[in-house]
Simulated scan of single mutants.
Amino acid sequence: MARMGLWQLDRAKQKLALQAEINEHGQLPALGNDSLARTQLQADEQAYRPITLTGHWVPGATVFLDNRQMQGRPGFFMLTPLRLATGDAVLVQRGWAPRDQRDRTRLPQVPTPDGEVRVTGRVAPWPSRLTQLGEDAPGPIRQNLDREAFAAQQGLSLRPLSVQALAPMALGGVPQDDGLLRDWPQPAVDVAKHYGYAAQWFVFCAMIAGLYVWFQLIRPRRARA
């Protein structure tokens, strides 16, 4: 139990370090199409840096990740590949939309224009994977998204990263209001819970130590006395 408490403290330390890295990389100059990572190693080095991309949406490849929360509400993360001038594409996490409570299969109506768009955001890891039973059907609503399988299904060459949009896309230089929320969760926000779990484990550890001393040492001596 003491080891579990130390593990929780280590998890909090990791999240604080990640948040510090996000803050540091967020102050670096914005990347562009030409400097976008092509390898996983480059993607790791560019994580959380600002980026501005231009390209064309691949609307037929839009995916809605289900059971994703923002501001405490359930809904979808809307993902659409952005085809670059080089012919390959990068997955853009365009934002969050609420789910229809009466019809779970009803998709949010978000415009996806045909012209060249400019996306302002930050480099981010591939969307996190949630626990699920079985595999998703190849439809627009999914629980998780595997990069290699998705690229093969859509016939795309995807860069080894994704981009979290931080502002509405711009079409012809004019921002387009799409109604999506972009209050992306920060990894260090829930650090307090790790400190709370660690305190619980240490309390359990102290209780067991106290009970051992009482039943194995003090009580037998009192009985003999």
Rank of each mutant, 00 (worst) to 15 (best):
A43R: 01
A47V: 14
Y48A: 11
R49W: 10
R49I: 12
I51M: 03
H56V: 12
P59T: 00
A61H: 04
L65Y: 01
R68S: 04
F76R: 00
F77A: 03
M78I: 10
T80V: 09
P81T: 02
P81R: 03
L84K: 01
A85T: 13
A85Y: 04
A89T: 08
A89G: 01
W96T: 00
W96H: 08
P98F: 10
D100V: 08
D100Y: 05
D103H: 14
T105V: 11
L107E: 10
Q109Y: 03
P111W: 05
P111I: 09
T112W: 11
T112F: 13
D114W: 04
D114L: 11
V117T: 05
V117I: 15
G121S: 08
R122F: 09
P125V: 02
P125L: 10
S128R: 14
R129E: 15
R129C: 06
L130F: 11
T131K: 13
Q132D: 05
L133A: 13
E135P: 06
A137P: 00
A137Q: 15
P140Y: 04
I141H: 02
R142Q: 14
Q143H: 13
N144D: 13
L145K: 10
L145T: 08
D146I: 00
E148L: 12
A149G: 01
F150H: 13
Q153I: 05
